[in-house]
């Protein structure tokens, strides 16, 4: 994979877990870890999805900019709407948006070339996230050990976006069904990623879970669409 152009903020941490890599949008994504156990994702899996394509923008014109390009804009602050192919458009607070493609989406590829400085009231936000998916029955136990927000009060259908602090790191959290797997999604600044990963996987290991590869967390995802 030496040819891959991009690398995940967690590339180094994942490399120690002896992964099999696949390439997504120019970034290696850990598909299988050497000691992936089949039950781990069902218990408490933490999967790096930093490779998924995403863009960010903010400003008073950001919502209109997205609408004009056919993107379903969530009308309430801190909610999200779904994109074809499993992606999400998250409205972060009032006027900022995070657009991320799912495993087979093409929205980001379509929008990114348009997103340049110059549109009035539309300010590109470079996204270099550490993006995670948390799967399994013990996700809430991990959340309550790391974050002071009651996530059990949120239903998936309400499509709530939560901007909060988790173990001291600013994170964006939402609940999603991705390629047939219910999961919690987490985004944080890439430079905080290794710390967050180390902390979450450490706690998860105590709970009988831990780091998992993409193929283990999302067995039903269509891998060929990613490449």
């Amino acid at each position: 994979m030496a040819a891959a152009l991009r690398s995940s903020p967690l590339a180094h941490a994942l490399a120690t877990l002896h992964p099999e890599w696949i390439e997504v949008a120019g970034m290696p994504l850990a598909s299988k870890l050497r000691d992936d156990r089949p039950d781990r994702s069902a218990k408490l899996g933490i999967c790096d999805l930093s490779a998924l394509p995403r863009i960010g923008l903010k400003g008073p014109g950001a919502a209109d900019w997205l609408s004009a390009r056919g993107v379903p804009v969530p009308d309430q602050p801190n909610t999200w709407s779904a994109l074809e192919g499993g992606g999400a458009v998250a409205r972060l607070a009032r006027t900022e948006f995070l657009v991320e493609d799912g495993f087979s989406g093409k929205a980001v590829a379509r929008l990114a070339p348009d997103l340049k400085p110059g549109s009035p009231g539309v300010y590109p936000v470079p996204r270099q996230d550490c993006a995670l998916a948390l799967t399994g029955e013990l996700v809430n136990e991990l959340l309550v050990q790391t974050c002071n927000v009651d996530f059990t009060a949120q239903t998936r259908d309400a499509r709530v976006v939560t901007l909060t602090l988790m173990v001291g790191v600013s994170v964006t959290v939402l609940q999603q069904r991705l390629a047939g797997t219910d999961c919690w999604r987490l985004w944080c600044d890439g430079t905080s990623g290794p710390y967050l990963w180390e902390t979450l996987t450490g706690i998860a290991a105590e709970l009988g879970g831990g780091a998992v590869g993409f193929a283990s967390a999302f067995p039903d995802a269509q891998l060929q669409n990613l490449q």
Binding site: N78, A93, R94, N148, T162, L163, T164
Partner: peptide, 8 residues
């Protein structure tokens, strides 16, 4: 914007 949160 974000509702009730702990002061931390």
């Amino acid at each position: 914007v974000n509702g009730p949160r702990p002061v931390s």
